[in-house]
């Protein structure tokens, strides 16, 4: 593995006496799809929120693209090329699908905000170009007919796709996906898997994937990191990790084996 795009070490996070993440770390190589799994309450979401900067860590270091980002807030990390989706769908509800994408592209617009306020031609042209790009991407995600629709008018499955398109339009180096398959029907999960793979293959986006659906993890991930009670208990290729007795033990009582073989 070459220099990782993301490397996280020794992360600790406590909430009012409960230690949610206890010294765990992980890394994502360039062009790699890494799965982050673990039983409920193992600290996956906390970890993800610390990686993307929504939540500060108590200790630990975060490096992104060779740069120490530990002290940076979420919006600065996004500007360095980190996109994310949310476990509980998050979109700008009162805006159109296209405007949702547009906002995610603001960070790489070259014209200043003031040119946009003044309505200067270069700013207008730039915005038109981004809108065209947004429509193109929406076609990619089968959302083209909905570009002008308010996002809340779309179904949950379609909104999930909007979230993915929103991440892709920013041209990120790393896309953090927080349970993208939650709430999707099996045919749509197949589509999701194909789309994520294309994101990596066509756009070269590295992916950190938190997921409960083992089919998604097995089909997509090059490598899997398993958390339990805030510590890393296993790491390796999906097939090997799911057979690891330590991992199986962590999941016992939750029907892990059954789901793994499904």
């Amino acid at each position: 593995m070459s220099d990782p795009i993301l490397s996280v070490e020794g992360v600790v996070k406590r909430f009012a006496g409960v230690t949610a993440v206890d010294g765990a770390g992980l890394s994502v190589g360039a062009g790699e799809i890494v799965g982050l799994i673990g039983p409920n309450g193992s600290g996956k979401s906390t970890m993800v929120n610390m990686v993307t900067g929504e939540m500060p860590a108590d200790s630990g270091t975060f490096r992104f693209d060779g740069r120490d980002i530990t002290a940076l807030p979420a919006w600065r990390r996004a500007r360095l090329g980190m996109a994310r989706s949310f476990q509980m769908l998050r979109l700008f509800g009162s805006l159109s699908v296209e405007d949702n994408l547009l906002l995610a592209r603001h960070i790489s617009m070259k014209r200043s905000m003031w040119e946009s306020v003044l309505g200067a031609r270069p700013a207008r042209e730039e915005e038109e170009a981004v809108r065209a790009r947004a429509r193109e991407l929406l076609g990619w995600f089968d959302l083209a007919p909905f570009a002008d629709r308010k996002v809340t008018a779309l179904s949950i499955g379609q909104q999930r796709m909007v979230e993915l398109a929103r991440g892709v339009i920013a041209d990120p180096r790393l896309f953090v996906l927080d349970e993208p398959a939650a709430g999707l029907s099996p045919p749509n999960v197949d589509r999701l898997i194909a789309l994520i793979r294309r994101m990596r293959d066509e756009f070269g986006i590295s992916i950190l994937l938190v997921e409960h659906d083992m089919r998604v993890v097995r089909d997509l991930c090059d490598r899997v990191v398993v958390l339990d009670s805030g510590t890393k208990i296993a790491e390796g290729p999906p097939a090997a990790v799911t057979q690891d007795p330590v991992v199986v033990e962590a999941y016992i009582g939750r029907g892990w084996k059954r789901r793994a073989q499904a």
Binding site: G93, S94, A104, V117, R166
Partner: peptide, 21 residues
């Protein structure tokens, strides 16, 4: 303008606005 759109983004979801940079 872009600024106005960002205002709306902050109103709708501040966390998300930060997450998209």
């Amino acid at each position: 303008s872009r600024l106005g759109r960002e205002w709306v983004a902050v109103r709708e979801d501040e966390t998300l606005a930060g997450a998209v940079g």
